[in-house]
């Protein structure tokens, strides 16, 4: 039963990813696109956690951790770029 639930949840997350990709391409302004990227990576973390449960493997949590760290740094770097016009000050 759990596998079926995970499949359903994965489909929901895939729809969520598609919606954020829509906002990423459409997004009228630059901050909209950054926000879409932010949502995209958080949803990807959720998908990876689900994959870990499905495969009964703990190695995926390291990937989730890494994505959480790197995604945050990426978001801040791009937002800083808008604020200052320079990535690394």
């Amino acid at each position: 039963m759990l596998d079926k639930v995970i499949m359903i949840a994965s489909v929901m997350l895939a729809i969520a990813l598609l919606l954020s990709v829509y906002r990423l391409f459409r997004g009228p302004s630059l901050p909209d696109r950054i926000l879409a990227l932010d949502t995209l990576y958080i949803n990807a973390i959720a998908l990876i956690v689900l994959l870990g449960v499905l495969q009964r493997s703990l190695i995926f949590f390291e990937a989730a951790m890494l994505m959480a760290v790197m995604g945050f740094v990426g978001t801040v770097a791009v937002a800083k770029y808008i604020l200052r016009g320079d990535i690394i000050e």
């Binding site: 997350l13 959720a46 689900l50």
Partner: peptide
């Protein structure tokens, strides 16, 4: 299963709001 479904629902609603 309930926790995973709740999580997926909230993630979907968040992107829907986006």
């Amino acid at each position: 299963a309930a926790l995973i479904l709740i999580g997926a629902t909230f993630a979907l609603i968040g992107s829907l709001g986006l």
